[in-house]
Design a protein around this nucleic acid. Structure first.
Lengths: 342, 342
DNA sequence: AATATTACTGTAAACGTTTACATTTGCAAT
DNA sequence: ATTGCAAATGTAAACGTTTACAGTAATATT
């Protein structure tokens, strides 16, 4: 049952193996009658093509690597769900690499890419130096790449990408805080090297500038995109000589950490401190207080990025591809309110 | 650089391709001197073996499928981290299938298994009917299988497994509630068909029985292992004619939902209602109130299960394997306290 | 020094496909 | 009935490895 090859089918159907292969891959090149015979034989033998042999022969693995900071972040799990949906539909398998935990270098990623013989690469909010280093590897191997979640830096602009308007969304979040009356707004974010948070920082700065609000030294604090990282960052802000009345967090994971830290230090959220997040992961809603945040269509981003990647793999790299921008939305809950009036 | 094959290396080193292959796979069978020559040639050409060809030739994909309810649950992401660690170390890649979201049938899983030519299968807390159906598929193909997280039902006992003592842990959780003075303790859990939650239910029942406490009709409510499922289940309990003073949740995801629902219905946790979870996901600690729960070493389970699977793949199925039991721990935080005194 | 033994290397087949090319078949046009 | 042509099928090579087997070189044994 398991070890039946195309040969057995051919024999049973009384045709050559080439014909069987054609039945499967180019049915239009084969007579109705023989096609029927072959189908019958396939059913009878329980044949299913050996994907290994196919991959080998075709030189395609149908394997795609996706690089992301952390699979533990619900945002990325949602993203991955979309990726999987598209991958399943197109017959691809996924290999995941986490940069945050393993802190892989671009070289290591590259090595993985060749050793696993992946057909394509999806960079999801990975660190910026990666991209550029991988660029060369890619142009050597002509490896299709798409970038998800983050805007593409100029030197990477030859690649396709799918993401929200991170700058605009960050502006919106900051403006919301300003509209509530806040003037002292700080920001915490992840790795300095992440393009993703770079864009969000840009948006924050732009909004502050537009409102003529100062950003004091030490008000933009880098941590890690983890609960613990956020708590450390928040503590710094709470101890700042000019303590902000609101914090804009680069993602919800950090916002959750920030809320927690603020509460354990005795501050009430949002009465003493307003906190706003980014991503709208499902825990944002059940947090106490429920998190005001920017909602991104994570699953859609993943799905579209994956479809895009499949297209590049199958049709070759598209020239001059424009980034696909998907919509975001400010979700107002209760973690951000008016500043304290004292 | 990319399309250099073993032939090129052989040519450059002035040896046969067989020797090159041996250098890579059985270096001890080759002279120091030739080995050196070959190494040199490999470096010079930048050769790296074509994994496709290798897989094809060896008849092994180094691909393992892991089936789990949901990748969105932080418990399973932690588990997967361990799985990946082991897989990377042993040179395997992972394909993930979610049963909860896609509600795949055993047949579909089986089809995936053959079409992807996976070398092994890890069933992580998947539904019970799966196991038995896949059993036959497995014994046909002699597919190595290991079961993670859940105890193995009798008919599956031929397979290796790695998990905590679910029954014991559930007893412990329930006993803790009893020790706090609770007598009216209900339970919410996921799919009725899940062995995992079955064990936890058994533990709960055993503890209640041992304390001579009644379990009223409708006190054990099945939902889904999601926030929404938990909220629905909790609502039922809160409206029960004999409203329990404590709820034991089959996992933290549900516990979070339960806490949220209780709070939105105006109950204080733990003053009016005690809630205890299971898994100790990282959000358990930042919840308000911080969640009392059973901690499982998710990452370790994943890692050990994966190593086990690799061993089965490489050495053939081990006979009469005993389940590997890893330790759990009751983590007491603040979501479970004494029952209301009114 | 001849032989037996061992250690190393080379030759060639095999794995299951796909596909370029050659061959045959069927059918239409003459 | 030929011929011509297109469509269908078959033949065989190729993909890059691994490995059984054969062959050769090196070493040990007499």
């Amino acid at each position: 049952m398991a070890d039946v090859s195309i040969k057995d089918v051919a024999q049973l159907a009384g045709v050559s193996i080439a014909t069987v292969s054609r039945c499967l891959n180019n049915p239009e090149k084969v007579t109705e009658k023989t096609r029927h015979k072959v189908q019958q034989a396939i059913l009878e033998t329980g044949y299913s093509p050996n994907t290994l042999a196919q991959s080998f022969r075709r030189g395609r693995t149908n394997l795609v690597m996706v690089v992301l900071p952390s699979v533990g972040d619900p945002f990325f799990t949602d993203l991955m769900r979309g990726v999987h949906t598209a991958a399943d539909a197109k017959g691809y398998s996924i290999i995941i690499e986490e940069t945050q935990l393993n802190s892989m270098t671009a070289d290591e990623i590259g090595a993985m890419l060749v050793s696993k013989q992946t057909d394509g690469l999806m960079l999801a909010a990975s660190m910026s130096p990666f991209g550029t280093d991988i660029l060369s590897a890619s142009s050597n191997r002509r490896l299709p790449i798409v970038i998800a979640c983050e805007a593409v830096s100029p030197e990477l602009s030859e690649f396709a990408s799918v993401h929200i308007d991170n700058v605009g969304a960050a502006k919106e979040a900051t403006n919301f805080l300003i509209s509530q009356g806040h003037r002292d707004i700080a920001m915490i974010y992840g790795q300095k090297t992440s393009l993703l948070t770079k864009d969000r920082e840009d948006g924050y700065r732009a909004a502050m500038r537009a409102a003529s609000l100062p950003i004091y030294d030490g008000w933009i604090v880098a941590g890690e995109l983890t609960l613990a990282g956020a708590r450390r960052a928040t503590r710094k802000l709470l101890n700042h000589e000019r303590r902000p009345t609101a914090i804009f967090c680069a993602n919800d994971e950090m916002a959750i950490g920030a809320v927690h830290e603020a509460k354990s230090c005795g501050y009430r959220v949002p009465d003493d401190l307003s906190i706003i997040g980014f991503d709208d992961i499902r825990y944002a809603e059940v947090l106490d207080p429920p998190l005001t945040t920017i909602s991104q269509p994570a699953e859609e981003i993943g799905e579209r990025a994956m479809y895009r990647l499949c297209r590049e793999i199958e049709e070759g790299r598209q020239s001059a591809s424009r980034p696909e921008i998907v919509p975001h939305k400010l979700v107002i809950r209760q973690s951000a309110g008016k500043p304290p009036t004292d």
